[in-house]
Amino acid sequence: MAAGGDHGSPDSYRSPLASRYASPEMCFVFSDRYKFRTWRQLWLWLAEAEQTLGLPITDEQIQEMKSNLENIDFKMAAEEEKRLRHDVMAHVHTFGHCCPKAAGIIHLGATSCYVGDNTDLIILRNALDLLLPKLARVISRLADFAKERASLPTLGFTHFQPAQLTTVGKRCCLWIQDLCMDLQNLKRVRDDLRFRGVKGTTGTQASFLQLFEGDDHKVEQLDKMVTEKAGFKRAFIITGQTYTRKVDIEVLSVLASLGASVHKICTDIRLLANLKEMEEPFEKQQIGSSAMPYKRNPMRSERCCSLARHLMTLVMDPLQTASVQWFERTLDDSANRRICLAEAFLTADTILNTLQNISEGLVVYPKVIERRIRQELPFMATENIIMAMVKAGGSRQDCHEKIRVLSQQAASVVKQEGGDNDLIERIQVDAYFSPIHSQLDHLLDPSSFTGRASQQVQRFLEEEVYPLLKPYESVMKVKAELCL
């Protein structure tokens, strides 16, 4: 049975990233139509530049190519590739079939990587351009969430054990800070992308030097003109047959890092959902379990974690691919890159769409948070109580021993009897502590235990987050809708 299948058929496997999760716009960027249309555009740009620099290419040939950029006979191309065992030459023939007058000058002087690699770089750039505003929107939604809850005390956790208090907004800023680093890295790697350009079979530009009869300047002009037509500021000066596969490492490393950030955020949300302090959106008709109707599973956060793990592992592909590119190139890269580049971007696209949807509907339960604080705060307040007693004339050592005994009794009630923490009640009825009984409410005010959390939130948002989001103001209103 021949390899390949009808990918629109229910009898043929289709990647869930495309069929179930990723956005239509990201799927289109990695589609065959987008790819092969870009090949034709690159052939047109090459012909236009070659004509401008004096090669015998007519206006009629150029116009014929322009008129057929979208006229792609995919069936013919597939048949040609089956016959020739070469995808680029299959599309040269297919393009030439609908451009008979231009057929002889299509791909003039070029090698397969002229269309293959340059198209990949265009796709990487455009895919990054799709991700950047999506990530900015996630940051914006979380920034709104953090600002609104900047002063809401909550129990902090280290080692997932109760620690000092923080605020809900401050905790959210930990998430935002990681995503801001990801946004900066995505922008950097996007701006650092260079075009492969017009380089020939081993990167020496020998074929173009021959076409222009040894004119170095025209060869350099050709490279520059096509690079500018493709919208790049610069091209690699040095290439082998391909652009260095280190570029793929750079791009997928940034995406993998984004995956790590999203995994951490969504894990926190899942843990908070278990504590009943916070939940992701839950639709009115949504079913959490087929057997347990009360369940409210954090399905979206779980999906993000599941896909983020996949995204983090994909960076190993370009690392290994770059390491086995012998001399000017081997074909070890080809099949692998067809999979890992598309999957990385479709996965990143999915987790950003999902995280935006989550961040637009996060639900906080202040009463649950308050109750958990009441359970733990008495123990945390013991040092403040000791200091207040010393100020009232008591002995630190005597007070410490009193607190120690009462704390152990209260802990026994919590752990052995399943009761509430009654340390404060014990202190309130103990005559030894009568000098500070009137101060206990103040000493137990949760806001006095959150330090500068709310001020940190305000400063972080104003100095770091809002300036970073400013270039994306025009796209901030787009909502994230999930079908599944």
Results as ranks from 00 to 15, higher is better:
Thr350Pro: 05
Ser301Thr: 14
Leu484Met: 15
Asp191Lys: 06
Gly418Gln: 05
Ser15Phe: 14
Ile265His: 08
Gly418Ala: 03
Arg372Gln: 04
Val189Phe: 06
Lys82Cys: 09
Leu42Ile: 10
Pro100Leu: 07
Ser290Pro: 03
Ile369Leu: 08
Arg459Glu: 10
Pro24Phe: 14
Glu302Val: 05
Trp39Asp: 00
Ala335Trp: 03
Asp420Gly: 03
Arg137Ala: 15
Ala230Leu: 00
Ala308Asn: 03
Lys402Met: 01
Thr119Gln: 05
Glu81Val: 01
Leu331His: 01
Ile373Arg: 02
Asp32Pro: 14
Val92Ile: 06
Ser207Asp: 01
Glu343Gln: 10
Leu252Trp: 05
Val315Arg: 08
Met299Val: 11
Phe379Arg: 04
Cys340Gln: 04
Gln285Lys: 15
Ala256Ile: 06
Glu70Arg: 13
Gly361Gln: 14
Cys304Tyr: 02
His7Asn: 14
His400Pro: 01
Thr350Met: 09
Leu484Phe: 15
His97Pro: 00
Thr321Val: 09
Phe36Trp: 15
Ser207Arg: 02
Lys147Glu: 10
Arg196Asp: 00
Gln61Trp: 06
Leu142Gln: 08
Trp39Gly: 03
Glu80Arg: 10
Gly231Cys: 07
Tyr21His: 00
Lys415Pro: 02
Gly169Arg: 02
Thr347Gln: 07
Arg245Leu: 03
Gln210Ile: 09
Asp59Asn: 13
Leu42Glu: 02
Ile373Trp: 05
Arg245Glu: 03
Asp317Glu: 05
Arg338Asn: 01
Ala18Lys: 11
Ser454Arg: 11
Val465Glu: 00
Ala143Val: 08
Leu53Phe: 05
Ile373Asn: 01
Leu331Asp: 00
Phe379Glu: 03
Leu484Ile: 14
Tyr21Cys: 00
Leu179Pro: 04
Cys173Asp: 05
Glu228Gly: 10
Val168Leu: 08
Val138Pro: 04
Trp175Glu: 05
Arg300Met: 10
Glu401Ala: 14
Met316Val: 10
Phe28Thr: 09
Leu108Asn: 06
Gly203Glu: 02
Val198Ile: 15
Leu222Lys: 02
Gly169Asn: 04
Glu81Asp: 07
His263Val: 05
His91Trp: 05
Asp117Arg: 01
Leu53Gln: 09
Lys470Asp: 14
Glu417Ser: 08
Leu272Phe: 06
Leu319Glu: 05
Leu183Arg: 03
Leu311Ile: 11
Cys172Asp: 04
Leu130Pro: 00
Ala291Gln: 03
Ser9Ala: 11
Lys276Thr: 05
Val168Met: 08
Met389Trp: 04
Asp59Pro: 10
Asp349Gly: 08
Arg196Ala: 12
Leu42Phe: 03
Lys479Gln: 15
Trp326Glu: 04
Lys402Leu: 08
Arg137Asn: 14
Ala410Met: 10
Leu121Glu: 09
Leu222Ser: 02
Ser31Tyr: 02
Tyr34Glu: 04
Ile339Phe: 15
Asp420Tyr: 04
Gly156Ile: 04
Phe236Lys: 03
Glu277Gly: 03
Ser334Met: 04
Lys391Val: 14
Glu462Gly: 10
